[in-house]
Amino acid sequence: MTAVTALLRQLGTGLRFLLVMTVLLGLIYPLAVWAIGQIGFRDQANGSLIHSNGQVVGSQLIGQEFSGTRWFHSRPSATATTPYDGLASGGSNLGPTNPELVKLVKERKAEVARQNGVPESAVPPDAVTASASGLDPHISPAYADIQVNRVARANGLSPAQVRALVAQHTDHPSLGFLGEPGVNVVELNLALARLSGTR
């Protein structure tokens, strides 16, 4: 039998095999995991959503854009057209020597320093760089720290109260080394809004 006739004979087997496997791997497998998720891990399976006043106000896992003095600010986001677009995840992909990125970093650094009344040397790297997903829910504890005084003043709270909230909403890596510590900005700002009585 030549290779070509062998090939033709195997096409039929291939098609039957693919159809059976599509049912098993493409329907039964994901739907079984789906069923387990919807029964056993409902919260996680549906996106770890945060509810407030009967509305979905965010996800514990997905960051949001904040501006103005009363909120803690998230990291810069490079999602397409608008920052923190949940349907357009992605990074800037700007290279480490790209003059455009150099300019962006320097501008952001000056802006963050000015807004929070701290020297530029106090601005940590995550405050001036876009994350990989553009949806990073966290900022570093250092970036939260330089924002505390501004946020406290704008909300009529004491810096100590705000600092306690930051500590409450800092996620520490499991076992101390699985990842890095981060302050969850959405949860922190929600707690802040509740404390200052705006929500």
């Binding site: 995991v33 996680q44 549906n46 996106g47 979905v56 949001q64 904040f66 949940g86 959405v186």
Partner: peptide, 29 residues
């Protein structure tokens, strides 16, 4: 799944963000 990876067949979730904007979060298996 137990650690937060999603598994649903819902349409994208509409979120009313704290700052007053809307955000859409994707679903999927």
């Amino acid at each position: 799944l137990a650690n937060g990876v999603i598994q649903n067949l819902a349409d994208p979730t509409t979120v009313h963000t704290l700052a007053g904007a809307t955000q859409h979060l994707p679903g999927g298996n």
